[in-house]
Design a protein around this nucleic acid. Sequence first.
DNA 1: ATTGTTCTTGAATTCGGATTCAAAGAATTC
DNA 2: GAATTCTTTGAATCCGAATTCAAGAACAAT
Lengths: 217, 217
Amino acid sequence: MARPKRRVERRADLVEAARRAMLQHGTSVRLNQVAEQAGLTSGAVLYHYPDLQDLLLDANRAGMERFYDGRLRAIEGLNDPAQRLIVTIASGLPIDSDDDGVRLLCELGGAAARSTVYAALLTSLYDRQVAMYQVILESGAAQGVFVLADSSLTISRNLVALEDAYGYRMMARHSNIDHDVATRLIVDYARLATAHPLPLDILTTIGNSTQKNVKQT
Amino acid sequence: MARPKRRVERRADLVEAARRAMLQHGTSVRLNQVAEQAGLTSGAVLYHYPDLQDLLLDANRAGMERFYDGRLRAIEGLNDPAQRLIVTIASGLPIDSDDDGVRLLCELGGAAARSTVYAALLTSLYDRQVAMYQVILESGAAQGVFVLADSSLTISRNLVALEDAYGYRMMARHSNIDHDVATRLIVDYARLATAHPLPLDILTTIGNSTQKNVKQT
DNA sequence: ATTGTTCTTGAATTCGGATTCAAAGAATTC
DNA sequence: GAATTCTTTGAATCCGAATTCAAGAACAAT
């Protein structure tokens, strides 16, 4: 009844299963729940990952990388700094309160306060996102398109902070804050910080290159 | 060996114990761990709170109220809008990565995505904090001290969002972001939004009316 | 097909925590 | 200080989940 794959692939399957399980049950997810998501028994999971914590860590790491890569991909090919800025802002926010990527990250906020490992992971993600914005801002400033009201570091830190916070708000299903409203709120700040009008219609013309995540069973 | 108090007081003790236990173990804290914090056995806890979830909910509610009240108290007696704004910003951030109040709130971010109750709690806290800022901004604008670059709602939402996010960053012990840095980052935004210089020395002259929370055993 | 390796199951065991409750301790009242 | 009520303990029990492992299934190589 079993059909062995390569060790690496199997572990990847488990990482994916763990990701789904954590979305449902949080960081204190049970081994059985992961096994169920994987369509296996707990013993099989343990065969590949003797320690559940390692699996959860890998799953979260993978989730973070996927999120970050998605953002990079969202602006690849775009050259206009204003467009890059707006698209990046939009890609940092969850589509809705069911958005898998952001959901997983939100689970880690509390864990980071208690675990140095998760703290390091989240901090590194934050820093990379800040750097991402800095590149956009600096290039825009160099082209004379943006006139920065503060250092690019300050503005970038604030932009990522705003994304994070509105992500949390949306996960908590705030009735007045959806993807569109949150984008506008952050862009309002970005306008002040860059002295650029940052027209939002740039977004709609592109369509959402950010793909909606599929419903999980 | 037991020394009965009034029912209400005893429950308050348990709420406090639950708060401490959650700071150590997160929202998935065990009944025994709460009992230990209370210096009781699990049976005694169950006598007052037959359902642990109710106790945790009360504890988080209490934590939120305490946090909010603290912020209100921080600006009571202050009249200068600029001073009120800066002090409010500072009071929304944790003192350091051990700050109890913010720590507890961060634990709830993940839970809110899965629980409607915690979602409602966090949303209500957010909205109240937004309203708090709106009052300050509007009164400053009415006095001609502030010239708002966006609606007071937009600015207030962003200010609270920034606090939240930097709270999370600090809880994750970001090495470059402490209370002082985070305050400056948010104030940088507030300056753009209010067209007011918002001198930070206003803070130091007051001393911190925000009391440092005591080390817990 | 046979052999050997990899993978998975299912049952047994163990572990930890939740729950229950009779008995006893501690305050209150009179 | 006796009676009453409230509170806590500690032991027993229950339950779910983690862990272990022998046995068997699935595949690869030959």
